[in-house]
Nucleic acid binder design. Structure first.
Lengths: 250, 250
DNA sequence: GGGTCGATCTCGCTC
DNA sequence: GAGCGAGGTCGACCC
């Protein structure tokens, strides 16, 4: 029996079932009308309403309202979830230390409960990430500029980590910052921070922001500060084209 | 009947129940062994394993493994979720446009299904946010520096959005950037951009980064660029003290 | 443990 | 719709 369901459990039954699930390392899902309180990095309260509660064996706890991608309240893994009755209600409490915080859900009316003894050994395989873009650039520096040589990847500097430290055909140093998505002003800031370091000592250094696109404002900021924008969409396109072929049509 | 449960539904029953739930605007939870594919901003695949699937009426779709706070695959609200059978399996598909993307879960073995006709009118009330820190500073500018006067809050300049524009005891302008958490290099970038642009026209201006803490690297970056760090932990402490009193002990 | 940075970031706001 | 910044960001990786 991998999953076990209870219909409209009373508080005592819910607490007993929850304790058993936590003890056995099972996932717990509860559909209920509840109130939620959070106390930790900030504090907050959510009045009564219908939500889905999920508790995982690693201490993860999620409160999902009927809309929205993000849980309205949550606890990341690493802590623990416990159950008890209080004033006649079942209460689920998730807590952790460092930072010290807690989420408490008071269950006013439980509509359904599912215990799920899940086993999952698979890991998510992803492609199209910035890490892959880095690999592509390392293997094809000419895609950025003819004659460019990568000297160092993820170079540590006084002001942070530089994606690529390179030299152009003339031997001039080039600081390269890579973004997988359309470049923003913050990305310009980041490149500017790295380049300012080298300009203090070597007047000749180039700064290059590499991304599939950039707004006019970002391009101007780069231009005004003697930095360059390089549109690199080949990687993007290649990756997408290859992947879409794999998907069966619906 | 707010919640309705099915134990180990077969593919046809699952699809029928899912379609009914989507049509009626109910939340759907499925415990199942499944495979998942994502195609969109990146692409990825997750091999067979036990997971909890949640579909919301706003088009949100979540795939949760037994561990971890974040769903391994998801679709934010705004799109739609549909169900069908394919090669004898039930398949749930979530998609949206802009960006165009899709998550497809092939259900190999359904252990449990819950339909939940949830109604929730409550909204989350939070305190301890950066907005409250702003209020505190506006009321107690002396906490940053003796004699400081706040001239403008949330000043929209052509240089960007400045948290506070102030003047010190000598009348020198001060650009203040406030962070609720430990300051990062990106926060330095932000302040640096505002101040450097301001300096182009007004030679004398101070830049102040206000946060509960900052790493040595951030402090050095500030120092090297003529900017200041002000540790403001009073608000943090006060707020936490006041809030912890509200919580009943477990 | 802290520091730094990416993320299918999401969310909310403003223009 | 794009642009910009916050987030209880989380998570990964490196020291």
């Amino acid at each position: 029996m991998v999953a076990e369901q209870l219909d409209a459990p009373n508080p005592e039954t819910l607490v007993a079932e929850a304790k058993a699930a936590f003890r056995d390392g099972a996932m717990l899902t509860v559909q209920a009308r509840c109130e939620v309180a959070y106390e930790g990095r900030t504090s907050g309260h959510l009045g009564p309403g219908d939500r889905i509660l999920v508790a995982k064996p690693d201490g993860t706890f999620l409160v999902h309202q009927p809309t929205g991608h993000k849980p309205v309240n949550w606890m990341p893994g690493g802590g623990s979830v416990s159950a008890r009755t209080s004033d006649g209600d079942a209460v689920l409490l998730a807590r952790r230390t460092n930072p010290s915080e807690r989420v408490e859900a008071r269950i006013l009316d439980a509509y359904g409960l599912t215990r799920f003894d899940a086993t999952d050994g698979a890991t998510y395989e992803e492609s199209g990430t910035e890490a892959e873009m880095h690999e592509y650039i390392e293997a094809n520096p000419d895609a950025l500029e003819e004659g460019l040589r990568v000297v160092e990847h993820e170079r540590e500097s006084k002001y942070g980590f530089i994606d690529f430290f390179a030299r152009d055909g003339n031997g001039t140093p080039v600081v390269v910052e890579v973004k997988r998505i359309q470049a923003t002003l913050n990305h310009f800031d980041q490149l500017q921070r790295y380049v300012s370091l080298y300009r203090e000592e070597n007047d000749e250094v180039r700064g290059m922001l590499v991304a599939p696109d950039a707004s006019e404002r970002v391009r101007r900021a780069l231009r005004d500060n003697g930095l360059e924008f390089v549109a690199l969409s080949e990687f993007d396109t290649d990756a997408k084209g290859a992947m879409e072929a794999k998907l069966t049509d619906f």
